[in-house]
Design a binder for these strands. Structure first.
Lengths: 326, 326
DNA sequence: TTGTAGGCGTTATCAT
DNA sequence: ATGATAACGCCTACAA
């Protein structure tokens, strides 16, 4: 390993001088600067970030906590975060929490121990206190809390958009497949959809519970058609579950969207490749990641945040599982 | 921040003693050990990993380089890696390279600068030299090279399995949709399939190029039916592309699998939720990640690797886009 | 069994 | 403009 000493020796100056020209701090004669630069490139010197981090008590590392990268909503999110940070020289330590307090806490601890300078967390609810007194910047992603900055999508609008789309297109017997209500954004989208539906004359609403994962989706779909065979409209908690319902509906010979309309949530890339292509509520996952990263960097640089809570728009993506020409 | 000094003071011993009991190295009287443990928990002391890393010149950090986490094959892979490492106290720094030399190199550099102790890389071909003289353990994942340890799936078998499955089930006009041949595993599966098909009487083979991504998939599907309308069997380079072809085939009124059989590759979780469910060649992504992590840890601990190259089995997953009852 | 002291690679203060 | 040198928090000879 080549250290600053080697460079100093090679350039015939002191380590202090090398440090100065490398960091562009303090003065340095143009010639010594050249000599140092030469030595640096000759020896291929790269500063040891660990030593830097130790001295400055801060690194270029940022922690990202996700529930589960295996859920297709999160890869886009995380790339949004990474791409933004990568361009600015930061690196990402990633942790999948599976929504578990303990795992989250474990990650947070090792994050601190590594002098991480900030955390972006898509945490499950009630784990907030993990982050409260952490003496480093935290941005919540796809989640909100009173006290912490957050970036999230408009779940309220999302739920209403889904409900409205279905009703406008004539569904009368609607089932909301509700995800785990312990997850705030999932709960909110559900509540908004339910409220709008319940306040509408001539619409009959049922609620069915489901997970968000591939594993649970199939059985949920079966249960849906079993319990509510007359259903002519489904609002799913995410696109995975919607896909399973679409599959099962097709299997049972339902005409989609003529007999049964389906709306998913998230707009994962796969939606566009289903047949019929899945109508859904789009969350701007990649952008959410970027914006969260941007906010975090601002906080790290002590720049003021114009808004503590940044709510991004969702949109109804009108594909083939909802009817046309109203 | 509470340091080892604070603990020493609290326990009324020297920092050396604290260090010893914390690390279980050297001797310590049972009573002083108790005193130290008490002080540690009272002060909530957590050793600073950065300082440790600086002194020992190694951290608990491991680098993972992927082409793109947004490709549904990789989330499972990366969770396999992470879960294995997480249990053993290691942490993961992740980097998406998009297959670009430069990005990879950039990540590798910062990895080194952060005293990372090992790298798992799912790199694109020809970037090997990035890793050759890296003076730290490297395991290639989903890739091979002469000199480096590697964990990968049996692409050769995969390609043949796909080809055989289609022929056994009666397809005569087969199109192989080939992914970027610069990616070795993609090229290999293609070559094996092609070879088997070409050596079979009465089978007509065509080759079509495609990307592996969502973006390219749709247009590739259109091109397929445009150029080769008589096709009755498709071997796709991955499940994404297969999904697009399935969709387009359905849209054009093809009966699947009666008129057209389709086989994907990877067995991403979504396959099972398509209609008809997609037959595919399964790569054990999660396991590949685990095994790669295991190998890396062995190398880090200077344990011998029983095999340098670990080839995992693939399997034909017989779902609904291939015919039954032969 | 325990403590002292030096060093890991870097930055920043303070002389010069 | 430049160079010693003391930190940063930890670990490990070595001495006691």
């Amino acid at each position: 390993m080549v250290t600053i000493r080697d460079v100093a020796k090679e350039a015939g100056v002191s380590v202090a001088t090398v440090s100065r020209v490398i960091n562009g701090s303090g003065y340095a004669h143009i010639d010594t600067k050249k000599a140092v630069d030469l030595a640096v490139s000759k020896l291929q010197y790269k500063p040891n970030e660990v030593a830097r981090s130790l001295y400055k008590r801060k690194s270029k590392l940022i922690g990202l906590i996700l529930p589960d990268i295996t859920n297709p909503f999160f890869p886009e999110l995380s790339r949004g975060v990474e791409d933004y940070l990568q361009r600015r020289g930061y690196r990402l330590i990633i942790g999948n929490s599976d929504g578990k307090q303990e795992k989250e806490r474990e990650y947070i601890n090792t994050f601190s121990q590594n002098n991480i300078i900030g955390i972006i967390a898509s945490t499950s609810e009630y784990n907030d206190r993990n982050y409260k007194d952490l003496n480093m910047p935290v941005v919540l992603l796809d989640r909100t809390t009173e006290d912490l900055p957050a970036v999230y999508a408009d779940q309220h609008a999302g739920g209403e958009l889904a409900a409205a789309a279905l009703m406008e297109r004539g569904s009368k017997e609607i089932v909301i497949v509700r995800g785990p209500i312990t997850i705030k954004p999932v709960r909110e989208r559900y509540q908004s959809a339910l409220e709008l539906l319940q306040n509408t004359e001539g619409v009959n609403v049922q609620v069915l519970d489901s997970t968000l994962s591939f594993q649970g989706a199939k059985s949920c779909a079966k249960e849906l058609f079993d319990k509510y065979p007359k259903t002519d409209g489904v609002i799913a908690c995410n696109d995975i579950v919607a896909s399973a319902i679409l599959q099962e509906g097709l299997r049972l010979g339902r005409l989609i969207p003529e007999d049964l309309q389906i709306i998913g949530y998230d707009d994962i890339p796969m939606c566009a490749l289903l047949y019929p292509a899945l109508s859904t509520i789009r969350q701007p996952a990649y952008e959410m990641g970027e914006v969260a990263a941007e906010s975090l960097i601002k906080m790290i640089n002590k720049e003021p945040l114009t808004e503590q809570h940044i709510k991004l728009d969702v949109a109804f993506i009108d594909r083939q599982t909802t009817r046309k020409g109203m």
